[in-house]
Design a protein around this nucleic acid. Structure first.
Lengths: 212, 212
DNA sequence: ACCTGAACACCGTTCAAGT
DNA sequence: ACCTGAACACCGTTCAAGT
């Protein structure tokens, strides 16, 4: 009736499973122990404490993300494709993003895309500090955007929202300089995909222009 | 010896005080009750539960942020100034940012700057959907950046960091196409202020170019 | 209308004790 | 080396009872 000896790896796998199925909040030491069929205190022997369990979990998941391959003919298209790929990877692991952010490890989410970005920016003719600035600008934009986007999805209804604010403006007849199409666009729900595309494309365009 | 009757407002003020002095984690119902000199359960009568206490707290703090006034001569300078002002406001309330984000109310952080942005973008000649896209792009960039930035500050030492990754590259002698200045720049610690300026300026430049 | 203490169902963590 | 149960110091929340 006795289970085979517990391993650190087994603990991590069970933890990952728990997070994937029931969200990060479900990952309590006691529930994890129950899933594993051991005493809570056994887990402590293998992973130290909750903090380092989460650290290890984040590390493992990030390592599994996989490489990013740029696509496209122009430098602009290739850099944008890296940004899109990074966003897609992160959005495929929403719980990971939340966990990494909660633990203050946001920088960790940068690394998978960094090599690819460096190569592309260099190929586009940027050098030295200017190239580094461009890489960082894209990284911050993508990760920041994913954080904002994920967060908006978590609580879709916001109380005094843009809709209420601009909806009435869109109805009003025009004071000089007013723009009903604008008001209507702001009253409509945000399309994050669209915002992302607009932002990345615009940002990259300016950044690469500095290289020519 | 009996204290005057508790009010909802008093609860919120004490909660804000607690968060400001000891961080969001210190805001427990029990500790709050202790600070107020009442029973824990009294708080529930006034604010419902912890959820709605946090909601009310966020709402109140956001309302106190104050208006944003654009500065500068050119449209570009004025939009950038709004972005900087929003960032400064948010960074002045780090706990607020954390709380708003945790509660999935990121959109809430947009609103203070939105009117100002709309006005400036319109003045720059953008109209309708295109203007709305520009406003949103700037908003997402600023809020996303602040989230990333705050988060990096929370845990300054990251284990397999950029430094380790690029530091050795900077030492190596050059494979074809390698760029030691770039490697050195990436090995150095990030200057978020610089990244922010670069990003906003580049983004706004492209966005406004579409209006002429 | 407002406050209270007791109680419930949870947490993470420590520790002495087992094999 | 690995596992265990008991215990500690916390949580948020409910509820019946007080004034």
């Amino acid at each position: 009736m006795s289970r085979p000896p517990l391993t650190r790896d087994e603990v991590l796998t069970a933890a990952a499973h728990l997070v994937k199925r029931h969200g990060p909040d479900a990952l309590t030491m006691r529930r994890l122990a129950a899933d594993l069929g051991t005493a809570v205190t056994s887990i402590y022997w293998h992973v130290g404490n909750r903090e380092s369990l989460l650290d290890a979990l984040v590390e493992r998941t990030v390592a599994d993300l996989g490489e990013i391959r740029p696509r496209g003919a122009t430098p602009h298209a290739r850099v944008v494709s890296v940004a899109r790929a990074l966003r897609r990877q992160l959005r495929a692991h929403p719980h990971l993003v939340a966990m990494v952010h909660e633990r203050g490890l946001t920088e960790r989410m940068f690394l998978p895309a960094q090599q690819a970005l460096v190569r592309e920016v260099h190929a586009a003719g940027l050098r030295g500090v200017r190239a580094a600035d461009a890489v960082r600008a894209v990284q911050f934009l993508v990760v920041g955007h994913v954080l904002v986007e994920r967060n908006r999805e978590r609580s879709p209804v916001q109380r005094p929202g843009e809709g209420d604010l601009w909806g009435e403006q869109a109805e009003k007849d025009t004071a000089p300089g007013s723009d009903r199409a604008l008001a209507r666009a702001l009253a409509a729900p945000v399309d994050p995909e669209r915002v992302f595309t607009t932002s990345v494309s615009a940002l990259v365009k300016s950044l690469l222009a500095a290289g020519t």
